[in-house]
């Protein structure tokens, strides 16, 4: 059982490692970038990666350094991903807990609202919100966050409903516990597990959604780089200059992987049932 536990730890550590690496990049990018990420260089259009020129990941169709753009895009992507997930998770979970715990007409009302939001395909909903709010960086956070609200509401409501049926909840009430006490002592800690899974999933999907929005021209506006609009720009030159798409793509893949590993590992680490059995 030690080995199994270690394996879980390694997964979580790998996730932490990947994410720390990205954080390091953000930190570095605040003080130093190999090139100016928005400066055009008409002499070096679509140059392949090379040590000699200093463009390690090559340049794009305007001669901008791809490595520098990825480094700067990193903070944009992470902020959007964290912000949107936080927004969706806080509002959605509160709604879900409220609906599940109080039941009755509150449950009915909240969940119908969630159902309506849920019935839109997530990208379409995000585009719709962007259309209303206008194309600004922080609006991307709102757009994706709103997509997440019904998802978190459903997960947390479902978890609360299942837990409410447990006899330990009845036991707590019969021990004189108040509703608030039962909610915070017995219910909320136990819904953390499904929520963490949902959070790690949402963090990664947010990156993809942001990319999709930027790709469609509704997210981060050029010339400022985001991984999504970099991919979008690379579309036309992908066959000619594959590095324009590969490196931003890999940046997305590894960050998503990092979030998923961390989520998986955290879920197992936080479960006392998986802690070493004496």
């Amino acid at each position: 059982m030690g080995a199994a536990r270690l394996k879980k730890n390694i997964i979580a550590l790998a996730g932490v490692g990947i994410i720390s690496f990205y954080l390091l990049i953000i930190l570095v990018s605040l003080f130093w970038l190999p090139f100016d990420p928005v400066a055009m260089d008409t002499l070096h259009l679509l140059e392949p990666p090379s040590i000699k020129t200093g463009h390690l990941f090559g340049t794009d169709e305007f001669g901008r350094d791809i490595l520098s753009r990825i480094m700067q895009g990193c903070s944009v992507s992470l902020i959007i991903s964290l912000g949107a997930t936080l927004l969706g998770a806080v509002i959605g979970t509160l709604m879900g807990i409220w609906a599940g715990f109080l039941g009755g007409k509150w449950d009915h009302l909240i969940m119908r609202v969630a159902d309506i939001l849920f019935s839109f395909p997530s990208l379409l909903l995000a585009i719709f919100v962007m259309g209303i709010l206008g194309e600004k960086t922080y609006n991307v956070i709102f757009a994706i966050g709103i997509v997440y609200i019904p998802q978190f509401a459903r997960v947390s409501r479902g978890a609360i409903l299942t837990l409410k049926g447990n006899e330990f909840v009845k036991a707590a009430f019969s021990s004189g516990a108040s509703k608030t006490y039962v909610l915070f002592r017995h219910l909320v800690p136990n819904i953390m597990m499904p929520l963490i899974v949902q959070v790690s999933l949402s963090l990664s999907v947010a990156i993809l959604l942001e990319s999709a929005l930027s790709f469609l021209g509704m997210g981060i506006q050029p010339p400022y780089p985001s991984w999504g609009n970099m991919l979008s720009g690379a579309r036309k030159f992908m066959l000619l200059a594959p590095w324009t798409a590969i490196y931003p793509g890999l940046a997305i893949v590894f960050l998503v992987l990092g979030f998923n590993l961390l989520g998986d590992g955290l879920r197992d680490l936080l479960d006392p049932r998986l802690r070493n059995v004496k």
């Binding site: 006899e167 330990f168 009845k170 036991a171 021990s175 004189g176 006392p272």
Partner: peptide, 22 residues
């Protein structure tokens, strides 16, 4: 009622769901 509750307590059927796993 809160004061009265002290005087009647419950023992449950399911030894699994009656204890909070955390």
């Amino acid at each position: 009622l809160y004061e009265a509750r002290k005087d009647f307590q419950l023992v449950f059927q399911d030894p699994y769901s009656s204890l909070n796993p955390r």
